[in-house]
Amino acid sequence: MTSLPPGTTAPLLNRRVLLHTALTLAVLAVVAGLARRHWPVIETGTDRLAVADHGWLSLAAVATGATWVCSALAQQGAVPRRLPAGRLVAVQFAASAANHVLPAGLGAGAVNLRFLTRCGLTVARSATALGVKAAAGAVARAVLIAALASACPGVLRPPDASVTAVALAGVGAVTVVVLLPGPPRRAVRAVLADVRAVHAVPARAAALWGGSLAFAALHAAVVVAVVQALGLPLSPARVALAYLVASSAAVLLPTPGGIGTLDAALAVALTLTGAPGGTAASVVLGYRLLTVWLPLVPGLAVLALLARRRVL
């Protein structure tokens, strides 16, 4: 084992302190910039929520907090080794804040990737675990949409498709995977192999699918609770369906945390469900306050703390 030459410890510590200080300042700058840019949205939403039903808002806040626990549960189900539970939940909280700084889930992906590698997984295995979690999340969202669409007939009208068309689409998807160049094809095969490995252990499969389903359902529950808090006479099932469809459509145009795209899609979906235009905008503002703006500063602070303690 080699030791550091005399006199090098202090410079190393000084560089580490400077790095941590720079990271903290960067976090504060991001918070200030986002708050300044979107302050009218924050102020308007706060005013509307101040006169809403606080009981329903409290329920929405509890559901918001539970989403991070469910995200941690799904992530645990996607990896073979046991992860530290407390740190895993804290990382999901920090990742949700980072997700509102970088587009298309890159922030959350980077934070989780760093955490998994710190826990001893290889970069390839960590990336595959994130892919498994993302795939389970997409399937869980599709299952919830299908279930709610069947419970609310006539609300969502899927395009007519024959069995032959569906079969051809499936064959086309398989063909695309087969024809992919080497690295992407190997990545797809690695994800499929990990999916099979997950289902070989019932507890892991239950964590992955249970956490993924609960994560999507709880986000829909936040919107439902905000609708109830504002006194809108809308069916909870229809509101949940509107959120799930809108959030799925917003993925097609990736922005940091879906800001802008999800807001517009959700407002339109709620209006089509029967909400007045102004009140639909208030629901979106309330949902954003609870899931983005209020947790953003503490989330970024936790992110900086986790980096400082070398958890990330």
Rank of each mutant, 00 (worst) to 15 (best):
R157D: 11
V223Y: 13
G77H: 05
L180S: 09
P254E: 05
T2A: 14
A108S: 05
L148P: 02
Q228Y: 09
L234A: 09
L179H: 13
A203N: 07
V268M: 09
G107K: 05
P40T: 02
A95F: 02
I259H: 15
A240S: 11
S3G: 15
F215I: 08
R125T: 13
R186P: 01
V188S: 10
V101S: 00
G105S: 01
L179Y: 07
P254I: 04
P103S: 04
V31R: 07
I145V: 04
L13M: 03
S150Q: 15
F115I: 08
G45N: 00
A61D: 04
L19V: 11
T261E: 07
L49M: 07
Q92T: 13
L208M: 09
L306R: 04
P181L: 01
A242P: 03
L244K: 05
A304R: 00
A206D: 10
I42D: 08
A265E: 03
H199M: 13
R141L: 14
V51H: 15
A246D: 09
A269S: 02
N112S: 09
W56V: 01
G170Y: 14
R118L: 11
A197L: 11
A301S: 12
Y287P: 03
T64D: 01
V143K: 11
L252H: 06
R310N: 12
A217L: 08
A225M: 06
G7M: 01
H38G: 10
A214T: 08
A10R: 15
R310D: 10
T175P: 06
P158A: 08
A78V: 10
G258L: 01
A173D: 11
A237T: 12
D53F: 01
A217H: 02
L285A: 13
G172Y: 02
A110K: 09
A140R: 02
D263T: 03
V174D: 05
T291P: 02
A35M: 14
A66E: 01
A90Y: 07
